[in-house]
Amino acid sequence: MKNDFYKYCILKYKHNVFLEESINIGILVFFSNNSKFSFTYSKNLSRIKYIYDNVPEKTIKEYLKRIELQIKRFSHIENDIFHSLEVNDLRNFISKNLLAIDSSSLQFSECKHNLQYDFHNEFIEEVLIKKFLIDDIKHFSNQPKEPKLLQKYFSNLKGLDFERINRNEKKFYIDYQLKNETGSVFTFDYAWQNGSLNLVKPISFDLKEPKSIAEKAYKNLGQFIDLEENAKNQNLRFDLILGKPSSKSLFKEYDHAVKLLEKIKFSKLIEEDEIVEYATKTSYEITKDL
């Protein structure tokens, strides 16, 4: 009917209550035409695990399962009580029955209220999911994992006064560019000086296929062999931060990839669990003479 309406709230994750940023991980929809709820959420929490370290994954998943069970229970209630719900009432319903309004990392947004017109419930649900949730998760899960390795490294350098460090001589660079003999330009996210100039590059092997890991290792091996003369003539070192596969079944391929990269001259390999130690070393070396 023309007077039917739907309401929806976005379930958001806030890693730090003091920050304004949040990430959509679920969406709750209520349809007045049948007094039913729909709740869709990220099953693997790929976005928040990609962006943040130390995510309480088990706790979050337990909350999500509880909310889902409650939604299923209320969706089986056959009465008209929800037809009279206004936006604020729905928010109170969520607070009392699904998730309390407090300072925890999971919070529902303010609810939106729209007329349904002649659109089917499934169509509206699909549109909302594509707009706020599913496409974003698919896009994000296909992104390269290198930025996470860099974030872990640089976050452990925060607090350094880079302007003071570089006041007398250049000791730390961002987006350092290196040209090979043919004029091709290679950009390194960071570079720092301690005798040699150490060029930092992340290489993630968190891939799905053994073949992809081998191909990526060979590609990088070829690129750095091409830059060996630069390293020799300019006193460079290639500091390669390596990301390990999530799947244990690919550890053998990863070990093989590491052995291939060990053939690169003028290089240092830093595995994922060594990033903090490597960042500490960077900090010490570029500040020890200040």
Rank of each mutant, 00 (worst) to 15 (best):
K2T: 09
K288L: 02
S95M: 10
V200I: 08
R47N: 14
L106E: 09
T40A: 11
K201N: 11
K179S: 06
P144T: 13
F224T: 01
M1I: 10
I165V: 14
K288P: 02
N194M: 00
D118I: 12
E146I: 05
R237G: 01
D239Y: 02
N97I: 04
Y50C: 07
S103K: 14
I94Y: 00
P202C: 04
I94F: 00
T287F: 14
L269T: 01
V55P: 05
E215H: 15
N88A: 10
Y278E: 07
L149T: 05
I77H: 09
K216S: 11
T40D: 14
L269F: 04
I174H: 03
T59N: 14
E169G: 13
S84R: 15
I124H: 00
S267R: 09
Y176V: 02
S103M: 12
L197R: 09
T287P: 13
F140D: 14
P245V: 08
L85N: 12
Y8N: 04
K244Y: 06
E271S: 15
L157M: 05
E215W: 15
Q193M: 12
S75V: 07
C9S: 11
G222R: 13
S95A: 09
G195A: 08
A191P: 01
Y284G: 06
I81L: 10
K43H: 07
I264L: 03
E125A: 01
F154T: 05
F37W: 02
D239H: 12
K58N: 06
F5I: 02
S103D: 15
S196Q: 13
L11F: 05
K7E: 10
E209D: 14
N235I: 04
L242R: 03
L261G: 14
D189V: 01
S46N: 13
D118Q: 14
I286L: 06
L115Q: 09
F82H: 10
K170L: 04
I71H: 10
F30G: 02
P56R: 08
P202R: 06
L207M: 13
Q107K: 07
I23G: 00
Q151H: 12
A257N: 12
L85Y: 07
D102S: 15
D4M: 12
S42D: 10
Q70M: 08
N97G: 07
N230E: 00
I81R: 15
E126Y: 02
V17H: 05
N166T: 13
H120C: 02
E78Q: 15
V276M: 09
L11V: 00
I241F: 02
Y6C: 02
F30V: 07
P202A: 09
Y41V: 01
D135K: 13
N44L: 06
F186Y: 06
S155V: 03
K65T: 15
L290S: 03
N3I: 08
N156G: 08
V55Q: 02
S103G: 08
A214R: 07
F238Y: 07
Q177C: 06
F18R: 10
E228Q: 15
E262F: 01
G183F: 07
I101Q: 15
K131S: 01
T287I: 13
G159I: 03
N92W: 06
S155W: 12
V55K: 04
D4F: 04
F172G: 03
